[in-house]
Design a protein around this nucleic acid. Structure first.
Lengths: 176, 176
DNA sequence: ATATGTGAATAGGTTCACAGCC
DNA sequence: GGCTGTGAACCTATTCACATAT
């Protein structure tokens, strides 16, 4: 498959795609294009999603619950090995397939399963404190849905997803 | 409040914050800083969130359902005036506060309420077709949660949120 | 004294243009 | 002939440095 065709599918320009790939090596054949299977395998390797990646989720409110049933994570090689909340008894519609633990068990599970990544869907007021506990027990990547700026050591990566900001961004462009 | 303090709260550098603000005017007082209330009002005006913005949500699966109960949207000046799904009878735990309509009603509601923005949480296979219908009836901003690249006219803005990619991104940095 | 506003300098990212290889 | 890989050119965004205002 040519970089042109791949780029169209990804929504970027073909030169961008080629330049980006070369940061990791040379994977194409001149005159021919790229072997899609080989490329997919290389990228999975790079992302570390060839082996199933354990992830924990903290905060089983509306959003946390939705993410637990979101099939996209499993499809991309992630397994939520545990969900944690201060209230494990709240009634929930569907029986969860993910084990639900009390917050006090967080450290145990993270250490036992050697988890490195956490999805943080707790209220803003609790986010920093939970983040501190996660970092202390070995988490080095946090996907943060709380609308606050987390303070973490520099070897810890935080990815922020702020749904209200996404809508505000859209709102701006719709107005102008 | 100084740009220094505002910048710390936002997680950016103070020069960045000042430069960005000046693209829209001069709002600070030298030697003193910024009036926070006035600044907040100016930004809301700019984003169009001072008046309540009507939004529709298409696709009431797990993720759509979570977004319907997400309080952050209302807090930032958005009102989901209608949710649409092919199956309006599926049993749901909580009674929704948002009216749930059949997909066939989408055009009616969007036109009646003069809606300009849509949250798209349908399966990937349906996303492009639904987007076409939304654009045809006057939507000019789409917050797309489907993992596909939508094709829309250039006067329509699409913001993509791909949760699996966010985790993959994190996974990369955790590995390296 | 303190903190903004901004031109100039720097850094970072994207696109071009084409040599190199199949 | 077709398509990759890549230095060079270009464009955009961030940071610096300081004149300006209170």
């Amino acid at each position: 498959m040519s970089s042109e065709a791949l780029a169209k599918a990804a929504g970027v320009k073909s030169t961008q795609l080629r330049k980006d790939l070369t940061y990791f090596g040379q994977f194409g054949t001149r005159g021919l294009g790229y072997d899609v299977d080989q490329l997919a395998h290389m990228i999975s390797d790079l992302l570390g999603t060839n082996s199933l990646q354990p992830v924990v989720l903290i905060g089983v409110g509306n959003l946390g619950l939705a993410l637990l049933s979101y099939k996209g994570f499993a499809a991309e090689g992630f397994e939520i090995v545990g969900a944690f909340d201060v209230d494990t008894k709240r009634r929930r519609e569907k029986p969860l397939t993910t084990p639900l633990y009390d917050m006090s068990q967080m450290e145990n599970v993270v250490q036992a399963r050697q988890v490195k990544m956490a999805i943080l869907t707790v209220p803003a007021s609790a986010a920093q404190e939970v983040a501190n506990r996660l970092v202390a027990v070995g988490i080095t990547g946090i996907l943060n849905f709380s609308p606050i700026v987390l303070t973490v050591p520099e070897d810890v990566v935080v990815n922020n997803v702020n749904l209200a900001i996404e809508l505000e961004n859209l709102s701006y462009f719709v107005q102008h």
